[in-house]
Design a protein around this nucleic acid. Sequence first.
DNA 1: CGGTCTTTGTAAGCTATACTAACAATCTGA
DNA 2: TCAGATTGTTAGTATAGCTTACAAAGACCG
Lengths: 156, 156
Amino acid sequence: MPKKEAIAITTPHVAGDEDIGEIRNIVGFHIRLAHGAVYRHFTETFADLDLTQKQVSALWLVADHPEIAQTGLSQRMRMDRATTMAIVNRLEAKGYLVRRKSRSDRRKQALSLTEGGRRALSTAKRAIQQHEQWLKSRFSEREVTQLIELLSRIHE
Amino acid sequence: MPKKEAIAITTPHVAGDEDIGEIRNIVGFHIRLAHGAVYRHFTETFADLDLTQKQVSALWLVADHPEIAQTGLSQRMRMDRATTMAIVNRLEAKGYLVRRKSRSDRRKQALSLTEGGRRALSTAKRAIQQHEQWLKSRFSEREVTQLIELLSRIHE
DNA sequence: CGGTCTTTGTAAGCTATACTAACAATCTGA
DNA sequence: TCAGATTGTTAGTATAGCTTACAAAGACCG
């Protein structure tokens, strides 16, 4: 395995700025950094599985909502239809899910997992568990609840 | 202005899953959603300025750390060198910063803002203020501090 | 009923981000 | 001195997110 380049971990204190103070007081900046860190660890954890965050989320949501339409998926993942398409396409190409015309509304495509998709999701969930463990290990249970609550206020 | 497609805001409660419970209990999922929401609002706020989150962060960091090298920037932004290159290239193309060979270590490129870069950053900081206002409006001051503290544990 | 507006999926094209691999120039330390 | 590390760079890949445009189907209203 080729040596991976380490991404450094230093952000020393620094003289502030007149107008809105230091960049480290910007909530958005911390969200970006945290997201990046989570993204990176996720990618490592899932290196062998060939699945991205979004793809796992999509599989999971389809499993939880059988016959969901692509629009429904977009809404739950907060993405537009075009981006959702791209993700569904990739999952379909991998053979993890299928589109079937909905009979109640023939504009819609009802999504459902294939057997392979169900297996992939099972494996993915085990990997997620590891990933979540890494993420949660730095918090108490109360803090986890709190963090989720605070984050929910942003995206809900 | 063309009508923008709304990204929906519904995530109703749903039957759980046997192994690790519902997706809504996954911290990583919430971070992704929150990041997405922040990203989207940022993009709206900065539509006229033609600057992305990363680009603003980079400008800001260069302003705070005159003569910083690209590696230093990578470290502070938690990105690899190649990705940093791309961002610095774009900012250089916009005329917001320049590379100059460092004399202390001639491998390095010392980055510094141009006059245009300083102006752009000033404008950007005002926009950031608005953006942060939107973000912080849902929290008390104490909660903001707490959120930053929790997020820092993830990325530090 | 018919016409109009909306919803849904789709395709094409653009940009930014993030990564790897490889290379050259330079620095560092044994 | 010379082997190894650091730094910037280029090239190539994949993903994500967006816009615009279009067709098919549904919903609504007079």
